[in-house]
């Protein structure tokens, strides 16, 4: 069984609904992480997540523009053809998210997610029985690959900065 999509996507409209959901969920999650990091006074990482949220929102707008004039089907949340429990850029990761996370960790999380997004589009580009869907998915996979490369440069830049997880001055009150 594929690890990228659990069933085949068979129409452009169905594909666009998946793409919209993927980008909206991604933007929403980064926005939420930015808000949470702000509340926990991790302002540097909050700024990183805000940047990523804006990027995903811009992608969502681009997909919306492509969907202009196309009647999109309603898909129940549990009927999306993801292989993960949810959207590839949100629910595939196994990363620890913490209020102490560093910009490097935030960018690494983003890189992982962007790769999952690109791989989803690339998979549909080879897997869909519809040529139109394959062509559109290939185009979007190429665009997503540009994002992967961009985020990868950010990861590399952050790796050059000496990073360490700071000591928690108010740690969880646990034993052992």
């Amino acid at each position: 069984m594929s690890t990228l999509a659990s069933q085949r996507i068979e129409s452009v409209a169905e594909f666009l609904v998946h793409a919209l959901e993927l980008e909206h969920e991604s933007a929403e999650r980064y926005r939420q992480l930015a808000e949470t990091m702000t509340l926990h006074h991790n302002h540097t990482v909050a700024a990183v997540f805000r940047l990523l949220a804006d990027m995903s929102a811009a992608h969502a707008s681009e997909v919306s523009a492509r969907a202009e004039g196309i009647r999109l089907p309603e898909i129940a949340p549990w009927d999306f053809k993801w292989a993960c429990p949810g959207s590839p850029e949100v629910d595939c990761d196994d990363f620890d998210v913490s209020y102490l996370m560093t910009p490097l960790q935030a960018f690494e999380l983003a890189l992982f997610n962007e790769i999952r997004g690109r791989d989803f589009y690339a998979f549909v580009a080879t897997d869909s029985p519809q040529p139109q869907v394959r062509a559109l998915a290939a185009e979007m996979a190429a665009e997503e690959n540009e994002h992967v490369e961009l985020v990868a440069t950010w990861v590399e830049r952050e790796r050059l900065v000496a990073t360490r997880i700071p000591e928690d001055l108010d740690p969880p009150n646990l034993q052992g």
Binding site: Q32, E35, T36, P77
Partner: peptide, 21 residues
Amino acid sequence: LRAKDYKSEVAPVWCPGCGHF
């Protein structure tokens, strides 16, 4: 309405990574 439209303007104070999100 989209799911996002049912979220209020109040930012959750839960810890990042909390299951409640």
